[in-house]
Amino acid sequence: MYRVDKNVYAYKCPKCGQLHYPAPMRCKKCGYRRYPEQEIEPNFQREGYKPWEKTPLKGSCKLLTYTRLWNLPIGFDQRYLDFGLVEFENGIRASGRLLVDKPKIGMKLNVRVGKIKEFYGKVCYGLQFVKS
């Protein structure tokens, strides 16, 4: 139970197949509901309900835009961080850390999951975009 799942997932609607990132509570295309936990929904009817499929975000992507941020919020001691907004081949878009020397809009990148933050001993993992 203490093992950390370091994947970052897109969620697929079981009814229409639409991919979402992050997971919504209702499909943006067909409106199908997502029940995250039985505990918060006492009238949850499992019969006929199809859970949403999790798909790890991986593979290659295209850089849409980027920045180097010099004024970081509390919790980050680095001098600066680079961020990018990318589009995956399946159409999913995401923001994340950019780890390339000379970024250029339109360049091909690969995604990996790595440490993005450590705050009071808690480690957060997230998307890192690296050279393909």
Partner: peptide, 14 residues
């Protein structure tokens, strides 16, 4: 977004 934006250190200026 508390899961896919904020933890990365993304800010409004970014």
């Amino acid at each position: 977004h508390p899961e896919v934006e904020y933890p990365y250190g993304l800010t409004l200026p970014a």
